[in-house]
Simulated scan of single mutants.
Amino acid sequence: MSHSDDIPVVTPYAPRVEKTPAAVREALDPDWRAEFEAGWRAALDQAKETFDLDPAHEVVIRWWPRAQLCQVPGAREEKERVEREFLAAGHPVGAGVRRHHEIRAADGRITL
């Protein structure tokens, strides 16, 4: 056994949620779970007509980061607080801007 085996691994990261519909659904907070289920069902209805599963895969990919967020106690609240601060300051919080703004909170801490 090497010296590094004696050191416990401590990480600030949440357990990784698998990118599967069931895993994402299970990891989401109840209110987000309901939204995910509605999107998932709509994508499956579309797939019945088009024989194209891409929209269903896109639902999973779109919701997976939120599922990850739900695994860290308090992370969702912090993310929503930061978004409120940016909106109150007149900064847009949208698809192109959100990723950049979520990296650092107003106090400089790294956030999701």
Rank of each mutant, 00 (worst) to 15 (best):
M1Y: 06
S2Y: 08
H3P: 03
H3N: 10
S4D: 11
D5L: 08
D6Q: 14
D6C: 10
D6H: 12
V9Q: 10
V9N: 07
V9D: 09
V9L: 11
V10I: 15
V10F: 09
T11V: 14
T11E: 13
T11L: 13
T11C: 11
P12V: 11
Y13K: 08
Y13N: 09
Y13L: 12
A14M: 09
P15N: 10
P15E: 12
R16W: 10
R16I: 14
E18R: 15
E18I: 00
E18F: 07
E18P: 05
K19L: 08
T20F: 06
T20G: 07
A23W: 04
A23N: 04
V24W: 09
A27R: 04
A27M: 12
D31W: 08
W32T: 07
R33H: 01
A34M: 05
A34P: 00
F36S: 00
F36I: 03
E37I: 12
E37P: 01
A38R: 15
A38L: 11
W40V: 06
R41T: 12
A42Y: 01
A43T: 08
A43S: 12
D45T: 10
D45S: 09
Q46I: 01
Q46E: 15
A47V: 07
A47I: 01
K48V: 05
T50V: 07
F51K: 13
F51C: 05
F51G: 09
F51V: 04
L53W: 04
D54K: 09
P55T: 10
E58C: 02
V59S: 02
V60G: 02
W63A: 13
W64T: 00
W64D: 02
W64G: 03
P65H: 02
P65A: 03
A67L: 06
L69K: 01
L69M: 12
Q71N: 06
V72T: 15
V72I: 15
P73V: 06
P73I: 06
G74R: 02
G74A: 02
A75E: 14
A75M: 10
R76E: 12
R76D: 08
E77W: 04
K79N: 08
K79R: 15
K79P: 01
E80F: 11
E80H: 09
R81F: 05
R81T: 12
R81G: 03
V82K: 04
E83V: 09
R84F: 04
E85G: 00
E85C: 01
F86Y: 13
F86K: 02
F86G: 00
A88Y: 03
A88K: 14
A88G: 05
A89T: 01
A89W: 01
A89Q: 07
G90W: 05
G90T: 11
G90C: 06
G90S: 08
H91K: 15
P92R: 14
P92I: 01
P92W: 03
V93N: 00
V93R: 06
G94T: 07
G94Q: 11
A95C: 08
V97L: 13
R98M: 07
R99L: 11
H100S: 07
H100I: 11
H101S: 07
H101F: 14
H101G: 10
E102R: 15
I103L: 15
I103H: 09
R104D: 05
A105R: 10
A105L: 00
A106H: 12
A106D: 10
D107K: 01
G108T: 00
G108S: 04
I110M: 11
I110E: 14
I110T: 08
T111P: 00
L112I: 08
L112M: 11
L112T: 12
